[in-house]
Nucleic acid binder design. Structure first.
Lengths: 211, 211, 211, 211
DNA sequence: TATGAATGAGAGTTCATTCAT
DNA sequence: TATGAATGAACTCTCATTCAT
C-alpha cells in the first residue's frame, strides 16, 4: 500500500535505517523478556528504545512485522552459533550430543533473547487459534541439518531405524523443555541437564550393538 | 472491593448454577481453542455461550477465576483418564509406555480442550514475563506418579541411573511436543507417533543389559 | 406504575412489610457509613441485611426511594431528639445554645447514621448538578422551629436585628462543619467544640446591651 | 503498570500540551457543575471538550489526576483572589470581614468552578467512607492565613479568647453554607448575605469592650 | 525522518434493574 | 413474598494505529 512512502516492503534499506530497526528490535527483545509478550506494548518498547512511538510505525508496518524481525534475528543468532558446533562432530551420534550441548551453551548466554522468543511464540496466535510453531529453540536451518544427520546416521548404521520426524520433534521438544525448566528454576544446573539430555537422546537413537 | 452477593466463594452451588458455570467453561474452552487465549475476550466467550457478558461476571469473580476453572477441569479429566492406565502397567518400563500411549489416546478425543489448556498456559505470563509452568499436558498428580515410578524403577534395577528430574521433564516435554506437532499437522498419525515416542523413552531409560 | 402488584406507592404497609423495610434501611445506613455512598451498591446493602438483592427492589421502587427512606428516618430521629431540648429553653438565646448542644449530643451517639446522611446528600446529585440541600444535620421541622425562635427573639428584643435567613443558614452550616471536623478528627473534643460554637452563635445573635 | 510514553510525570509540558490539559480541565469543571461529580464520566467530559475519550487518558494518568488538577486549579485561583484582599485589611477584625466578602465576590464570578469543587469533594470518598475534607471554599494557604490572623488578633487584644480551631472551622463552614444556599437559591442576594455573615463573624470574635 | 497528539475500538468490571420461579 | 439468575449499559483504562507538522 501507499508505495514508496514507507520503507516496509522489500526495499533496500539504508544503513541508518537498519540501525534504527536493529535498535528497536533489541528494545523489543528486552521488553518482552522483562514484562512478557502480553504486556509488551509498542509504547513500552518505544520507551525502552528511547524513541517515540511513531518511529516504530514508521520503520515497521506494524507490531506483527516487528515481532517477525525479532524472531528472525534470534533464530539467525542461534543458527550461527549452533551449526558450526554440529559440523565439528565426528559422527552422527556426536552430532546429536553436540546439538544439545551447543543449544544449552547458547541459552546460558542469551536467556533474555530466548525468553522473548518463547514469549512471542506463546503469545502470538494465528487466526486458527494456536501457534503455528511446534518448536521454539531450534531454528529452521538447524532443524534441516538435524534431520539430514539423522537420516545419514541411519544409512550408515550408526543410528537405529526410528521415524526421523518423530525423533527430530522429540529432540526439539526436549530442548525446549530444558529451557522452560531452567527459566522457571534459575538455579537449575543447565550444563548438567544438557549432559543428561544428551545421554537420553543418544541412548534413544543409537543403533543396537550387534548381538 | 469484594463484590456483592455473588456466589463466588466457597458457597454451595445450586444445580443450575453449576450448569451455567460448566456451560461457560465449555464456551471458554471452545473460544480459546479457536481464536487463542490472547483473543479470547469475555465478550467472545459470552457470545459463544449465548449469554450476556455480565453473566460471566456473575458466576465467576473475574476472568482469572474462569481460566482457573478451565485448567482445573481439563487437568482433572486428563488425570482421571491417564492414571488408571499407568496403574495397570506390570512394571516401570511399561508404565512409561502406558503414560505416553494414554496421553496420546486422550489427545485424540480432546483436541480442543488441550488446545485451550495450552493457550492458557502460553498466554498467561507472570509478572516476571514467562509462564510459571514448564509443562502442559501432564497434570500434577500424573507428574507425581511418574516421578515415583522412575525412582522405583531405578531401585528395582529396571531403569538405569539417570537424573530423575531431567528424565521427567524430558518425558513431559516430548509429550507436549507430540501434541504441538499434531496440532500443526492434523493429518499426522498420532498413534504411530506415540508408539515411536514410547520406544524412544524406553530406550533412554531402561537399564543396560548385563554384560 | 403497575398498580397493585408492588407495595411502593402510598399503600398501607403490613407489619412484616414495614419490618423488612426498616431492616433494609438500617443495613443501608451501616453500609453507607462504612464504605461511603459511592460504594454502597444494592448488592452490598442486601448482603449486610442478609437478604437477596431482589428483596430491595421488591420493597422499594429503586435505589432512590431507599435513600429517601434513609434520610427520612434519620431526620425523624434527629428531630425527635432535638426538638424537646429546644422547647425546654427558657428564652430564645438559650434555645440557640440548646440547639447546638443537643445536636452535638445526638452526633456522639449516632455517628454512623449521620455519616450515612452526609454521604447521601453529598453523593446524590440532582439532574441540575448539585445537591438540592444546603444543610445536612438539621431536619426540616427543627429548621422551622429555629427560624420561629429567631424571629420571636427579635420581636422580644432578646436578639438583634439580623437577617433571619442568613443567621439560620449560618447556624446550620456551623453545625454541619462541626460534624465534618469531628468525623475527620475522631479524637476531637466534640463537647468542647459545641460549647465554643454555642458561645459564638450567642454572641453573634444577641441584642446589644443598652448603652 | 506504568503507562507507556505518555507525558504524565514531571515532564516538561509543551505549550500545546498545556493548552489541551487546560481545555480538558475546563471541560471537567463544566461537566461536574452541570451533572454532578457522580455523573461526570470521562465520556461526558471528553464529549464536552470536543475530543475523544482517549485524549484524556493520553494527557492525564487517569480520572484521579484530572480531578486533582481541577481542585488544584480552582484552589489556586481562589487563593490568588482572596489572599491580597485579606492582606489589605488594617486589623484582624477587618481581615475576617475581608475574607468573607472576598470569597463571596469570587463566588459570584465563578459559580461553576466552585460547584465543581464542591462536587469533587463531596463525591470523592476515602476508603473509610467520608471525605477527608471538612471544608470546601477555603484553600489551604487561605486557611493558614486565617488561623494566623486569629491568633494575632487574640494576642493584640482585638479578638476575644475563643478556641482558634473552632472559630476557623466555623468561619469556613459558614462560607460553605453561604455558597450552598446561593447555589440552591440562585436569586439570593449573595452580597447582602456576605455582609450579614461578616457582621455575624465579627460579633462572635471581637473582644468585649472594656467595662 | 521523527514526533507528539489524537483516535476509536475493545478490554474487564460493576451495577441497578428485571423477571421467572 | 422472596430468590437467584440474567441483562445491558456504563464505567475506566489500554493499545495499535494514523497523521499533521
Amino acid at each position: 500500500m501507499r508505495p514508496g512512502s514507507r520503507p516496509h516492503g522489500q526495499r533496500k534499506h539504508t544503513f541508518i535505517e537498519e540501525a534504527r530497526r536493529a535498535q528497536i528490535v533489541s528494545a523489543a527483545i528486552d521488553t518482552i523478556a522483562e514484562v512478557g509478550f502480553a504486556n509488551a506494548s509498542l509504547s513500552r518498547i518505544a520507551q525502552r528504545a528511547g524513541v517515540s512511538k511513531g518511529v516504530i510505525s514508521y520503520h515497521f508496518s506494524g507490531k506483527d512485522e516487528l515481532m517477525d524481525q525479532v524472531v528472525e534475528q534470534v533464530y539467525s543468532a542461534i543458527a550461527e552459533f549452533v551449526l558450526p558446533r554440529i559440523a565439528e562432530a565426528p559422527d552422527e551420534c556426536a552430532a546429536l550430543r553436540a546439538h544439545v550441548l551447543a543449544v544449552a551453551d547458547y541459552m546460558r548466554g542469551h536467556r533474555e533473547q530466548l525468553m522473548a522468543l518463547a514469549g512471542i511464540f506463546n503469545g502470538t496466535r494465528t487466526s486458527e487459534g494456536t501457534s503455528s510453531r511446534h518448536r521454539l529453540m531450534v531454528a529452521e536451518p538447524v532443524y534441516q541439518e538435524i534431520e539430514k544427520r539423522l537420516r545419514a546416521g541411519q544409512e550408515r548404521g550408526v543410528l537405529r531405524d526410528f521415524d526421523v520426524r518423530v525423533m527430530a520433534v522429540t529432540l526439539q521438544a526436549s530442548i525446549d523443555g530444558m529451557f522452560a525448566y531452567w527459566v522457571t528454576h534459575p538455579d537449575h544446573d543447565l550444563e548438567a541437564h544438557a549432559a543428561e539430555l544428551a545421554e537420553i537422546i543418544e541412548r534413544s537413537a543409537r543403533a543396537d550393538p550387534p548381538a
